[in-house]
């Protein structure tokens, strides 16, 4: 979704790519960007993003920044165990997605939270 043509990059590489291949897109990213593998039919295309797409969270490390899938019931998460926004039908409470809310709270469908 985010391909920005940089004059300094050879035509084969787009956006934040450091190295790339015609067949698999970005193989490595410029510093501080996250590499994400987009599924394209049978192929996986690497893209370099400033943040991981919805449903994934980013982990930074000195040499590579990667995207990892959140839990299935979570749309957007900080890490594997802390959700920030749940899928429809689930309600967020203290970072977890639940199908119902504790007694003292109410399920809000618009916010998908226990409020």
């Amino acid at each position: 979704r985010q391909h920005k043509q940089n004059p300094g990059v050879s035509s084969g590489c787009q956006g934040g790519c450091l190295t790339c291949s015609d067949y698999n897109g970005c193989l490595s990213c410029k510093p501080r960007l996250f590499i994400f593998l987009e599924r394209n039919g049978m192929r996986q295309m690497g893209v370099c993003l400033p943040s991981c797409p919805s449903g994934f969270y980013g982990t930074r490390s000195p040499d590579r920044n990667t995207c990892t899938k959140c839990r299935p019931e979570c749309d957007s998460c900080f890490n594997k165990n802390l959700c920030m926004r749940c899928r429809a039908g689930y309600y967020l409470h203290l970072g977890k997605c639940q199908e119902s809310c504790p007694e003292s709270l109410v399920c809000s469908d618009t916010q998908r939270e226990c409020v």
Binding site: R60, S61, N81, L82
Partner: peptide, 10 residues
């Protein structure tokens, strides 16, 4: 008191 995740690596 509500903190659940704290990353201090690297």
């Amino acid at each position: 008191s509500s903190l659940v995740v704290l990353h201090l690596h690297n």
